[in-house]
């Protein structure tokens, strides 16, 4: 710093704090600075000056320690000035705003995705329902519901395939929704062949008694079979016995493999 020794004159403008105007001649003035320092340090003397300076230095040390401590605190904001705090607050506000915007955007996106996935779910549900309905018609799924059981006993072996076909037609006309005969599901393409107790359904041999499990409205199906000149009377004329039993729970569980058509394609 200043290469020049400050003038020893204590009255000069650069007088350091703690100095005083020149007093009366003092024997200690003859000592060097180093000797004075040593004399001040040792031996310890309890003088008023020492005590006062000790008190002030205690305050200084206290303030120093507190300040160092608070500066070393984790929160950098502790010692920050007001304008710095305001600036930091501004930055935080801007950041919050940006994040709010982003949150809004993401919320919108989420709503959109949820809506569209709801729509897709609805479409899937409808498709499943339709598949079930069509599966019952095509015989690819099992069906249960109210209906009747028609049992044809053929002791004499006189039942022909056309009689059974008549029974099927009659049942269909009466609103039967699912039919199976002795474990063979009856669908649109079902055919009966053979005669005199030697009957095949869709190429599968079936034997008496012929047990028709039919799902439909029992109050419609039963009279349809029992009408005069109807299926039951025709069969009885042929020495076969036909019994109709209504039930609240008929299970049609004979299945048919789903066949993919070779040529026909959906036009919708």
């Amino acid at each position: 710093m200043n290469s020049e020794e400050p003038p020893p004159n204590p009255g000069a403008p650069q007088t350091p704090p703690g100095s005083q105007p020149p007093g009366p001649p003092d024997p200690r003035r003859q000592m060097t600075g180093r000797q004075r320092l040593a004399a001040g340090l040792w031996p310890p003397r309890v003088t008023r000056a020492q005590l006062v300076v000790a008190l002030l230095l205690f305050v200084l040390g206290l303030g120093l320690a507190i300040q160092v401590r608070s500066t070393n605190d984790d929160s950098a904001l502790r010692g920050a000035r007001q304008e710095d705090l305001v600036r930091i607050l501004d930055e935080l506000d801007g950041r919050t705003e940006r994040l709010e915007d982003e949150k809004q955007r993401l919320d919108d996106q989420q709503t959109e995705l949820e809506t569209s996935s709801d729509q897709a779910e609805e479409a899937r549900k409808q498709t499943r329902e339709k598949e079930q309905q069509l599966g019952i018609l095509a015989g690819t799924v099992a069906a249960r519901g109210p209906g009747i059981t028609l049992t044809v006993q053929d002791a004499g072996g006189t039942v022909d395939s056309d009689m059974l076909l008549d029974a099927i037609q009659e049942l269909r006309a009466a609103g039967a929704e699912a039919i199976q005969v002795n474990g063979v599901r009856v669908v649109a393409a079902t055919y009966f062949s053979g005669s005199d107790g030697d009957i095949e359904v869709d190429g599968k041999r079936i034997r008496a008694p012929y047990r028709f499990k039919v799902i439909g409205k029992p109050q419609d199906l039963e009279p349809a079979l029992n009408i005069p000149g109807g299926v039951v009377q025709t069969l009885e004329r042929e020495q076969a016995t036909a019994t109709v039993a209504a039930s609240e729970e008929i299970v049609v569980d004979a299945l048919r493999p789903a066949q993919r058509p070779d040529y026909a394609r959906s036009s919708s």
């Binding site: 703690g18 100095s19 180093r34 006062v52 300076v53 002030l56």
Partner: peptide, 19 residues
């Protein structure tokens, strides 16, 4: 203030009241 007081002491002109 403390450095000023130390310097004054070395100069031999230290007075506690001034400090």
């Amino acid at each position: 203030a403390v450095f000023g007081g130390l310097r004054a002491m070395l100069d031999g002109i230290f007075v506690d009241k001034v400090f």
